[in-house]
Design a protein around this nucleic acid. Structure first.
Lengths: 112, 112
DNA sequence: TCGATATTTTAATAGTTATCGAATCATTGG
DNA sequence: CCAATGATTCGATAACTATTAAAATATCGA
């Protein structure tokens, strides 16, 4: 993932309603959630919700599909993973992540 | 980690120079890097760098300590981990993360 | 204490982003 | 085709963010 894309993703998530929407989508899984449902759950007018969803889509964090009259949004897990990987890349100079403060919740810690 | 703090952290990272600075700090580890060195590496005037570092600090993503005339910044790994945990919380409704698209690069996947 | 070095604060300006009503577009059922 | 429903686009306004020169602050060595 290149810096430019990462910045778009971070900017997209750095907003109250978009962060909340994205988390709902992450929790919803493949199935996704319709734009209107998100607007209602987050108590945001449809036009505002649409604006925010467009930003998430532009950042590549969500995908959309039409289903009858509704447009269903889903989280793009690959993009989310790419984002996190970028932040932790080469953590601690690539060496075993200092004894006291782990670089990651638990994953790719290299040695002991 | 609460939403408000997460948004501050994401906003802080969603900027070219701050993202670059944070990554340098993540890679530098506990040792940290001086403000002036960051400014030089990133080709940013000192006052701009200072502005950006203040935002990272305000977001809780970095800590600072004085060492003689220099101010040394270091990444706060705990904050970074908290951030990532927040994004993936309850991923896929808490269930095993769909077969095709993992929620995380490898860590807390719950079952098979 | 003075001058040099390292950094931050201030302040003005330019640019970007959020908000949401109204208008528009797309789909469906009758 | 028409009315209803679900969603997006437009447009105006308000609020926030980045940038950087210049001034201020802190530390050090002589």
């Amino acid at each position: 993932m290149q810096a430019d894309r990462v910045i778009r993703a971070l900017s997209a998530l750095a907003q109250e309603h978009r962060l909340a929407a994205f988390r709902l989508l992450v929790q919803a899984g493949e199935q996704g959630v319709a734009a209107g449902v998100l607007a209602e759950k987050l108590q945001v007018p449809p036009s505002s919700m649409s604006f925010h969803l467009a930003q998430l889509a532009n950042a590549g964090l969500v995908t959309q599909r039409r289903e009858s009259r509704s447009i269903i949004y889903s989280a793009d897990y690959a993009a989310m993973n790419g984002l996190m990987g970028y932040l932790t890349e080469n953590c601690c100079g690539g060496m075993s992540c200092s004894e006291d403060a782990a670089c990651l919740p638990s994953p790719q810690r290299k040695s002991a």
